[in-house]
């Protein structure tokens, strides 16, 4: 089991604000978007055969006290130890999410090397990166209409379709309802699937 750090801005997130403004212009009548939020996700894996408990306490201190992960002037964070994160990941109230990662290896070895230089923590394996966009949406039928919004605001296809993810560099998964962390972990660890040829 891995530990997770989610970092978002407490000042205005201009990317999310612009995504909202730009995204609204792409919607067909009857569909509304009330909010978009963005978080960076860092996954801290234990070394193979190890447990996150061996490094989580030190890691938690580094998150709180250093500049590696969080600038308290402008960011807020949620640090979830392997036990705190539970079995599954639920979106914020009435939102759903698009989780995206680069198509290449998601490991950030440079960050790990720098972190260990200052905060030795035996047992820490890979640090992986991803990004999550939370959307608060409503279709004509009153439901969040996630499939429609993902089609319109998710993977970029052309000037009218897609915005948040460029599928040539990134790959994405839907976070709708409670998503087992095991699926999220696999999504981050396994090689990105081949790009589905556009219809």
């Amino acid at each position: 089991m891995s530990a997770v750090l989610l970092v978002g801005l407490k000042i205005t997130d201009l990317s999310a604000w612009t995504a909202l403004e730009t995204g609204r212009r792409l919607l067909e009548p009857g569909h509304t978007l009330s909010r978009i939020a963005r978080e960076q996700l860092l996954l801290f894996e234990p070394e193979p055969g190890g447990k996150a408990e061996t490094f989580e306490r030190t890691l938690g201190e580094a998150v709180r006290q250093s500049n590696f992960f969080v600038n308290p002037n402008k960011e807020r964070y949620r640090f979830l130890t392997s036990s705190e994160r539970g079995e599954s990941w639920s979106p914020p109230d009435s939102a759903w999410g698009i989780l995206s990662r680069v198509r290449e290896d998601t490991r950030d070895d440079g960050l790990k090397a720098r972190l260990l230089r200052e905060h030795p923590m035996p047992g820490l394996g890979a640090i992986r990166r991803a990004k999550v966009w939370w959307l608060w949406s409503r279709g004509p039928d009153g439901t969040p209409a996630a499939p429609y919004f993902r089609e319109t605001l998710g993977e970029l296809r052309d000037q009218r379709h897609g915005l948040l993810v460029n599928p040539h560099a990134e790959t994405a998964m839907l976070l709708h309802g409670a998503t087992p962390w095991s699926r999220v972990d696999r999504f981050l660890i396994q090689p990105a699937p081949a790009l589905r040829a556009a219809a």
């Binding site: 250093s66 500049n67 720098r114 230089r117 200052e118």
Partner: peptide, 11 residues
Amino acid sequence: RAAPVREIVRG
């Protein structure tokens, strides 16, 4: 204090 110094350089 090499580790924090290097973080400051980079930052």
